[in-house]
Write a protein that binds this DNA or RNA. Structure first.
Length: 681
DNA sequence: CACGTATTCCG
DNA sequence: GGAATACGT
């Protein structure tokens, strides 16, 4: 309200005018400059894939036309550094305020925190909002104030919070445009010539943009939602909501989805429609998983690249680019897997069930490093979403406390008859099998020669034999797990004896990138002066390196200090007014590595303190903050807590570990606190 | 109704 | 693969 200048509303993955708190705040404050900055280089390895960029392009055009009808238009900038672009825009428009909505992926956490610091230093008033979640991650904690580490406990809590998620805001009636005459727009290029042809087909199936998202929601809620619980495990996906890409780009707010669906649920409950009620519960659960993915990303910023259960570091992944290629091309010899991979390649879309099938096959049968698969999903999915995909792959890989058990292989043959009982899905995507009878459609290798001949199939020539036999995969998986536990035990023993860990161990050598993916090699300088550091970092590198692993690389003392701070601040600073208090910091890796052994005896270390908004802020906002749920509660997060291992809530209250695999290995109950490792230089 | 067995579900 | 539930005798 105060200050004469206009405000900048920085759009990112909130490409909507309805229920957009940052936009609403800008409109309340006066004249608005709406801005979108395209800086994909900031995403490192996670440069958006072709179909995702296609969507973004459409969605931005849609937003721009909505903004125009409200009285302003979208200023677009091509940049390699969002923050300098913001500063430029401030300079050329005389804006005095910046509003944006929170994001929770690790890259944004760091960037947004810096943006806040740097613009505030320029005298700009910066405020940020929750537009992406039902509840902010720091609002959802257990009785002791610690973050949850299992989904069901988390979601139960979300559904029983003492206050409901905010009701969605209406779109502004009109927007007073700020003076952007001295602030030029760049035209953004999202696709090259070679991509245009492939993208042309997408428009037939999808309509990006916030009002289309709204239509998709209505269509779903009035149609397939009722039978969601019946249909959700069928491979042909006509009954899903198709909301995920809309949600990824924030074209529709989850709060709106939530309330809309809940209203329907109450209606059905009153009619005694049990099936409908149950369907809503199940659908909301999938919304909850998206919610949880942000929660995990916020609490464990490395979850997109490192297993959350540390023992997976010792898993001997099979590094075989031939396997990887066969998987990508849908030539594994397992019809359901292959059909899925062909659909993904052709359309950028996969039903959730099929995502589970192909990723589980990837990890359990092929035993390829899960981050390769995740990266491929990132490159090809229309709804590619770092947090959701990381959670999904970690779940499949058994690297979460409540994930699937690692020692169990889903057999695509049996799963096939469950989710595609008549083989229609397989036949649609694998024309070479289209004449094969249903009896053999999910296991052609068992079919009699005569049947294959009649269907025109020659295994090994026009359709592959199984790339790996399931039985062989089981044996190999068992061996790999044995090896993993041995290494894990050995390294723990070594640490307890104060010995250097894992020296000369061949399984520690880093996994190189497949050439096929455009990922940089991460050449790790060997530091002979401190072998322990070398060892630990090798384990990180065993995963496919990513932007953040190189960002947080600790090569020289000077930068590592800064990096360390930014990591710590990152977690604390998503809210616009958190106070980071300096705390004791562990400085040697030795201590940090030793820590996990002690954490069993250490009380929970999440030092969330409920604090008050600082006074400056609350007065400035008193007139405009009805939207934010602040009675002033915002976490104050002490960096000291990052020095301790994240504690996995064990069996103390009710959340009994159902997993025998984890029970046999109690140490695997601890979530890795990778932050701790990277903080120590 | 008890009991054994098939089926379903599992973030 | 194992618990929970539904089913069948």
């Amino acid at each position: 309200m105060s200050g004469g200048g206009c405000s900048i509303v920085w759009f990112r993955r909130d490409l909507r005018v309805e229920d957009n708190p940052a936009l609403a705040a800008g409109v309340r404050a006066g004249a608005v400059i709406a801005v979108f900055i395209w800086a994909p280089e900031e995403e490192g390895h996670y440069y958006p894939g072709r179909v995702s960029r296609w969507w973004l392009k459409q969605s931005l055009a849609h937003l721009d036309s909505s903004l125009k009808s409200l009285g302003t238009s979208l200023v677009t900038k091509r940049s390699t550094d969002s923050i300098s672009s913001l500063l430029e825009i401030v300079k050329s428009t005389g804006a005095t305020q910046l509003f944006f909505n929170h994001l929770y992926d690790p890259i944004s956490l760091v960037r947004d925190h810096r943006a806040k610091e740097m613009l505030t230093a320029q005298g700009i008033s910066v405020r940020s909002f929750n537009a992406d979640l039902l509840y902010e991650p720091w609002e959802v904690n257990d009785e002791e104030g610690r973050p949850f580490t299992t989904f069901s406990a988390f979601w139960e809590k979300c559904l029983s919070m003492p206050y409901d998620p905010e009701a969605p805001l209406l779109p502004p009636k009109r927007i007073i445009p700020g003076d952007a005459s001295r602030c030029s727009s760049d035209s953004l290029v999202f696709e090259d010539e070679s991509e245009k042809g492939s993208n042309a087909l997408l428009a037939r199936a999808w309509s990006p943009g916030w009002s289309n998202a709204d239509k998709a929601l209505t269509t779903f809620v009035n149609g397939p939602l009722l039978e969601y619980s019946q249909n959700r495990r069928k491979a042909d996906s006509a009954t899903t909501s198709f909301l995920s890409p809309h949600l990824h780009f924030g074209e529709v707010s989850v709060r709106k989805v939530f309330h809309f669906v809940r209203i329907k649920q109450v209606l059905w409950a009153n009619e005694g429609n049990r099936a409908g009620e149950e369907s809503v519960n199940l659908f909301l659960k999938s919304i909850g998983l998206r919610e949880y993915s942000r929660y995990m990303s916020f609490n464990h910023p490395y979850s997109h690249e490192r297993p959350l259960l540390g023992h997976l570091r010792y898993f001997p992944w099979v590094v075989d680019e031939g396997y990887f290629k066969a998987w990508r091309q849908g030539r594994t010899g397992y019809p359901l897997v292959d059909a899925g991979m062909r659909e993904l390649w052709a359309t950028g879309w996969l039903h959730d069930r099929i995502r589970v099938v192909v990723s589980s096959f990837f990890v359990k049968v092929l035993q390829l490093p899960w981050r390769w698969g995740m990266k491929y999903f990132w490159d090809t999915l229309l709804d590619a979403d770092l947090e959701s995909d990381a959670l999904g792959w970690q779940y499949i890989s058994g690297t979460l406390p409540d994930g699937r058990e690692f020692d169990r292989i889903d057999n695509p043959q049996f799963v096939g008859y469950k989710c595609d009982p008549h083989g229609e899905y397989v036949r649609r995507w694998l024309p070479e099998l289209s004449r094969l009878p249903t009896e053999w459609i999910h296991h052609p290798w068992n079919a009699p020669e005569s049947v294959l001949e009649a269907a025109g199939i020659e295994l090994g020539s026009n359709y592959p034999l199984p790339i790996v036999e399931i039985d062989a995969a089981k044996v190999r998986l068992e061996q790999a797990l044995t090896q993993m536990w041995q290494h894990e035990a050995a390294s723990r023993a070594a640490i307890e004896n104060g010995m250097e860990e894992g020296h000369g161990d061949s399984a520690d050598s880093p996994i190189a990138f497949p050439q096929a993916m455009h990922m940089e090699m991460d050449h790790e300088p060997v530091r002979n002066n401190n072998p322990v550091i070398v060892t630990v970092r090798r384990y990180e590198d065993q995963m496919v390196p990513s932007m953040t692993s190189s960002l947080f690389r600790v090569d020289d003392e000077e930068t590592s200090v800064n990096i360390r701070n930014s990591v710590v601040d990152t977690r604390a600073e998503v809210p616009n007014d958190v106070n980071v208090t300096e705390g004791p910091r562990r400085d040697t890796l030795d201590q940090a590595v030793t820590q996990p052994a002690r954490t069993n005896a250490t009380p929970p270390q999440f030092n969330f303190v409920v604090g008050r908004r600082n006074s400056e802020d609350s007065t400035a906002e008193s007139s405009s903050s009805t939207r934010e749920r602040d009675g002033g509660v915002v976490p104050v997060w002490s960096p000291s807590s990052t020095n301790y291992s994240d504690q996995y809530v064990g069996d103390d209250n009710g959340i009994g570990t159902s997993s025998s695999y984890l029970q046999r290995h109690p140490q695997s109950h601890q979530l890795m606190n990778w932050q701790r490792l990277s903080q120590t230089g």
